[in-house]
Design a protein around this nucleic acid. Structure first.
Lengths: 263, 263
DNA sequence: ATGCGTCTGTTCGCTACCGTACACATGAAA
DNA sequence: TTTCATGTGTACGGTAGCGAACAGACGCAT
C-alpha cells in the first residue's frame, strides 16, 4: 500500500520548479534528488538551525511559521508543489528565524545544500526560478502581515483554506481547528466559530480533523482581497509551471483554470 | 545652503551596500550612480508599476507599504543606508504589489534598472549583497506579520521608533502621529495614546511632527522581541557594512555600537 | 460495549482597539 | 494680531478577539 503510494508519487517533475527546468539542467540535478516522505508535523528545519537540504514538495504542503518567546505562533507563508523550502540556502544566510513544518502530509524531493548552491551559482534557469519564487513568497509574507492587521478571523480562515486547497489535488484537508489556530495565530475557539459559520452555510463540512470544501466559489466570495493578490502574483511570477504539463499530475493542473477572483 | 547639504552628502559609500563593494565593482557602477534628493512623501514606485531604478539611500529612510482597497495601509518593511529599494528588479518580477515611500527626507543614489541587472548577473559581490539584504528584508516582513498579530500598539510603536532611529544619524524623527499610524496600520488616536505614555515617562518628547528620543535604553526595554530578532538578523547577514568604515559618515557608525538587546 | 483521549461547540467576562466626534495647541501666513 | 491649517489630546459607545472553563461528540483501543 505504501509502496504503491510512493511509486505513483515518484516523479520529481510534479514539483513546478523542477518541472520548469530545461532537460539538461534537470538531468544534472536528478542524481542528487532524494525522494522523501513528508509526514504531518515534521519540522524540515527549526529556527536558527543550519539548513542541510532544500525541499521540493510534490503533494505535501509546508508552512513557514514563527514561534514567539511566549509560545504563540503565526504562519508567514505556505508552500507546496509550486515552490521549494529552504530559500535561505541560496539567499546566503543558511539559516532563518522561522520554522518549516509539514502542514499536509505527502511526499517531495530534497537536494543537499551543496548541490543546490552549486546549481544556483551557475546562474541558469534554477537561479531564475528560485528568485522568482522567492519574490512570490515575499508577496505572500507581506500580504500576511497586512491581513493580520486589518482582516477578521473569518476572512483569514477563508484565505488560509484557499491557499491550502490550491496546493492539494483534492477538496479535503486533514487539519484540526487547533492546528489552523496555530497557523493563523488566533485562539482555537475563534477558528471553531469561523468554521461554524462556513459549515452552517454549507460551504464546508467539518468533522474531527477533516475539512471538506463543498462550495469553493462561495469561499472565494467571502475571502479578503489578500488571497487574490497573492494568487495573481504567483501566477505572474511563475508561469513556467505550465511548461511541462504533460509530466505533472493532471488533477493539479485543472485547478489552475478555476476562477478565483471576485465578481 | 542646499548645495552645502548636497555636497556633504555626496558619497555613495555612505550606503552600506555600495560601501561593501570591492573597489573594482564599485568603480564599474560609479558612472551609472545618480545622486538624488529624496523628499518626504515621495513615492519611489507605486504598486504594480514597473521599476525604472533601484535606490540606495544614504541618510534617507524608505518605507515599503501596502495600501488596501479600502484605503487602509500597513508598512511591511523599512530600509535606509543599510540597504536598497527595488529588489523586484533582480528577483525577476520587475514590479511588486507594494509602494515605496520616503518616510524621512534625505538623499541617496539611484541606478538604472538595466545597470543593476547587468551587475547582478555577473554573480559577484553585488549579487551576494543584494541577496543577503533581501533575506534580511524577508525577516523584517515576517516579523512584522507576527508583530501585527500578537503585540500591542505600544510595543509596535517602540519597535517602529527603534527601527527608524537605527537608520538615522540623529536622535530625532520628523514624523507626525498620523503618518506613524498609517505605517503601523492603526488609528491616529492609538498612536497618540501610546506616544503619550512614552512622553509621560520622559522616554520621548513629542511636538508637532518632531519626536526627540531622550532615553533610548528605556525604549529598548519596552519593545517586543521583534525588534531584536530583526536587528540581529541584519547584523548577521550584512556584516560587510563595516568593511569601509573610513569612507562612511562616522555618526552613523557610532550608532552600531549602541547596546540594543534587553537585559 | 465501555472507557478514554481527542476534537468541536458554547459560554462569560475582559480588554485592546475601532469609529466618531470634538476641543485645544501650535506655528505659519495674511 | 488675527486667521487658519495642521497636529495633538480626550472622551464614548461598540466590538472583535482573548483567556478560561466546561460540555458534548466522536472514534479508537482494550
Amino acid at each position: 500500500m505504501l509502496s504503491s503510494l510512493a511509486s505513483e508519487n515518484q516523479n520529481p517533475r510534479q514539483n513546478d520548479i523542477l518541472a520548469a527546468l530545461p532537460l539538461e539542467d534537470y538531468q544534472r540535478l536528478l542524481p542528487d534528488l532524494e525522494f522523501v516522505s513528508m509526514p504531518l508535523g515534521w519540522a524540515l528545519y527549526e529556527a536558527g538551525q543550519k539548513l542541510t537540504h532544500a525541499y521540493f514538495p510534490t503533494n505535501s504542503i509546508v508552512s513557514l511559521l514563527y514561534v514567539m518567546e511566549n509560545g504563540s505562533s503565526a504562519e508567514i507563508a505556505v508552500t507546496g508543489y509550486d515552490g521549494l523550502v529552504g530559500i535561505a540556502l541560496f539567499m546566503g544566510g543558511n539559516t532563518t528565524p522561522s520554522r518549516a513544518v509539514v502542514q499536509s502530509a505527502g511526499f517531495g524531493y530534497r537536494l543537499k545544500a551543496s548541490a543546490l548552491k552549486r546549481e544556483f551559482q551557475l546562474g541558469g534557469k534554477l537561479q531564475q526560478l528560485a528568485l522568482s519564487f522567492t519574490q512570490a513568497l515575499i508577496t505572500q509574507m507581506a500580504q500576511t502581515a497586512v491581513c493580520n492587521r486589518h482582516h477578521t478571523v473569518d476572512q483569514q480562515l477563508c484565505r488560509w483554506l484557499l491557499l491550502s486547497l490550491d496546493r492539494l489535488p483534492t477538496n479535503h484537508l486533514k487539519m484540526t481547528q487547533e492546528l489552523i489556530a496555530n497557523m493563523l495565530g488566533v485562539r482555537r475557539e475563534g477558528v471553531t466559530e469561523a468554521a461554524g459559520k462556513l459549515q452552517n452555510e454549507g460551504i464546508i463540512s467539518y468533522s474531527r480533523g477533516l475539512i471538506l470544501v463543498l462550495d469553493r466559489p462561495r469561499l472565494e466570495k467571502r475571502v479578503c482581497e489578500c488571497y487574490a493578490v497573492v494568487k495573481k502574483e504567483f501566477d505572474r511570477l511563475l508561469p513556467q509551471k505550465h511548461l511541462h504539463e504533460n509530466t505533472a499530475a493532471p488533477n493539479l493542473r485543472d485547478k489552475r483554470l478555476h476562477m478565483y477572483l471576485k465578481d
